[in-house]
Write a protein that binds this DNA or RNA. Structure first.
Length: 651
DNA sequence: TTAGGGTTAG
């Protein structure tokens, strides 16, 4: 039921006749270059951050397509091909447009390729000279050099700049500071002053932002005191940056104090502190701040709503969330994607898929974040078919997809144990570069192991560059799921040798592995070592795994002793496991105790009656079995009808 | 200047 329709090729518009005509005009060499992204209009317009839409106005300019192709190669990091293509452009007399130079420099910066950055810089100097009038301002070169850690190049360029603008100083100072070169940043700061520049708030702001990005609290403090001492005119952006600095560095109290004394109330500063509170798990204070903010009459925006709704869902405070939702409706912002999406997420986190859908329907132009939020919502309530439907819809419309969507769908395939859809999605995500590091990769490991292919799960795992605790746990749990205890334990050793620390869930995997392979002694050792060596406190879940270990091995008395030992607070599951063990190993005396306790704890759970009934029945104790059946009927407990599914010819 | 969606278990 969950299989996907066959996937079309990645460039859906390759058969467009207009495009074919356009391609005929360009040299044959051009068409041989394997780059579907270059010439796909959908790719060009799919990202809001794409610079291509604004370039389109020059569409008729000579060499437009070539310029487009060149920057596309550079954006993909294919600089070798880009340089080859550039030499072809040079020989054909095609110039690089100013906007395209800018993108080339941006790409070099993004890919940290100093070598190529220098090359394109030299190319520009050779062809158009050092002229801002061409439309390539020096600041994008400065930025590129800082992004590529070409500090000397940046300094040289800056020193040679005939007309240094405020912005250029700002880039230099923050560039140094963000890269940890604080002495250089401060020296330049003083140089600027001695050169007769007034210390504009923008420069102070640059330095402060760099300090908060680098978490350089001390430097930030010094700038703060400089601001106070020199009696710089109070400035709302400086104040806001200071609030942000203290938040980022974890000094929430200082930040709150500053906020109280700001010259002018500013929504960004309030939001910043709210973020600080929520990240520190102080959700209640975030809500109190929101309340105060409203009393101060600060104009609310979607950033505030998003963070306050997050606090509400973390607190599981539906009432507060509803109020915020109401507030958003009153302001008429619920149709705005930036406010609407956090509402969807809030309802998803509360498990109210219906409310989430209603909120989603109100969004006038849902974006990929909205879609991924609603897909996650459906996945959480096991409405897997809807997840696929949405995905097919997005894909058929060639809408923007992202790694979040794929990660959720991998989880769906894991839940459905559907390797067909799973591997198609995997391939699709790979082609689009949308398997996110760790998140997506761990979900894939689980997807393959759950759908029966431990071999693929292992291969996927081995391809993870730096597996974290979650990724290791995923593969360990996968091995445990397939009863491959020795592999799981081996991986656990490897994990530690890589310096990755196990967490509570890792131990569930380890104990499960032991339980499926009858490793009683080892399980006990691991359970005991948890708090001793790993500082992970065992919970009832871990003890239940241990109960399961004993039960599967037929050591029912041991299982009972553990439950009865007082070392943990047994829950219904503890008794349920023991009851199952007693049924398998025909121990009615213990089974009776287990059943009674289980029934006492979960009187509404049909399974409690059915399992107790089965235990008596399998021992031929029909009178007791009948009394259980009678008790179940008397209490009106009904067994849930179960179902399963198979896929036949994609249906 | 401030945020929003996802990873591991029984």
């Amino acid at each position: 039921m969950a299989s996907l329709s066959p996937l079309p090729p990645p460039n859906p518009s390759s058969s467009n006749p207009e495009r074919s005509r356009a391609l005929n005009k360009i040299p044959p060499f051009f068409t041989k270059i394997p780059s579907w992204i270059s010439l796909s209009s959908s790719a060009a317009s799919s990202s809001s951050s794409s610079p291509l839409p604004f370039i389109r106005k020059d569409k008729n300019q000579k060499g437009f397509l070539e310029n487009l192709h060149l920057v596309s190669l550079s954006k993909q990091g294919r600089f070798h091909e880009a340089r080859q293509f550039l030499s072809f452009m040079d020989s054909s007399g095609i110039l690089i447009g100013a906007d395209f130079y800018k993108i080339l420099f941006e790409s070099c910066g993004a890919q940290r390729s100093l070598h190529d950055g220098r090359f394109f810089h030299q190319h520009m100097l050779k062809n158009i000279g050092r002229s801002d009038s061409y439309g390539v301002p020096g600041d994008c070169l400065l930025r590129m050099y800082f992004d590529c850690a070409g500090f000397d190049d940046a300094r040289k360029l800056f020193e040679e700049m005939p007309n240094k603008r405020l912005n250029d100083w700002g880039i230099m100072i923050s560039g140094y500071a963000e890269n940890g070169l604080f002495h250089e940043a401060i020296a330049l700061f003083y140089k600027m002053k001695s050169d007769g520049f007034r210390l504009e708030p923008t420069i102070i702001t640059c330095l402060l932002r760099a300090s908060s990005t680098a978490l350089e609290l001390e430097l930030g403090r010094q700038i703060h005191s400089y601001v106070v001492k020199t009696g710089l005119v109070p400035d709302v952006s400086v104040d806001t940056e200071l609030v942000n600095l203290y938040v980022k560095c974890g000094c929430l109290e200082s930040s709150a104090l500053l906020l109280d004394h700001m010259v002018e109330s500013n929504v960004v500063a309030w939001t910043s502190l709210m973020v600080g509170y929520t990240q520190a798990g102080r959700q209640v204070e975030a809500l109190v701040l929101f309340d105060r903010m409203m009393q101060h009459g600060v104009e609310l925006d979607h950033f505030v709503f998003s963070i306050v709704l997050k606090a509400c869902s973390a607190l599981e405070d539906r009432e507060a969330g509803w109020q915020v939702h109401g507030c958003i409706i009153k302001l008429g912002m619920d149709s705005d994607v930036s406010a609407g999406t956090p509402i969807v997420d809030f309802y998803v986190k509360c498990g109210s898929i219906g409310d989430a859908c209603n909120a989603f329907d109100r969004i006038s132009q849902p974006n990929e974040v909205s879609w991924s939020a609603i897909i996650t919502g459906y996945a959480q309530v096991d409405r897997f078919e809807e997840c696929f439907e949405i995905f097919r819809y997005l894909r058929s419309r060639d809408m923007l997809l992202n790694s979040f969507i794929y990660t959720s769908l991998f989880q769906v395939c894991a839940a459905l144990a559907d390797p067909n859809s799973g591997s198609q999605l995997h391939a699709d995500a790979l082609k689009r570069g949308l398997v996110s590091k760790l998140y997506g990769e761990s979900a894939l490991v689980t997807m393959y192991s759950r759908s029966g292919n431990l071999d693929y799960a292992r291969r996927t795992f081995e391809l993870i560059a730096e597996p974290d605790t979650v990724a290791w746990t995923a593969i360990i749990a996968g091995c445990a799921y397939h009863g491959r205890a020795s592999e799981a334990l081996e991986l656990f050793k490897r994990m530690q040798s890589h310096g990755v620390k196990p967490n509570s869930i890792t131990f569930i995997g380890i104990l499960n592995a032991c339980s499926h392979s009858g490793l009683i002694f080892e399980a006990r050792e691991y359970l005991d070592s948890m708090s001793k060596f790993y500082r992970v406190k065992p919970t009832v879940d871990h003890y239940n795994c241990m109960v399961d270990v004993y039960c599967r091995a037929g050591q029912l008395e041991e299982a009972f002793k553990l439950i009865d030992s007082g070392s943990f607070e047994p829950d219904a599951l503890s008794w349920k496991i023991l009851l199952g063990g007693c049924t398998t190993h025909q121990n009615v005396d213990l089974g009776k105790i287990a059943g009674e306790n289980y029934l006492k704890m979960e009187p509404e759970d049909a399974a409690a009656y059915v399992l107790t009934f089965n235990m008596y029945a399998s021992a031929g104790r029909w009178a007791e079995a009948a009394s259980i059946r009678k008790m179940m009927n008397g209490r009106g407990v009904k067994k849930e009808v179960s179902c399963s599914w198979i896929t036949v010819k994609d249906k």
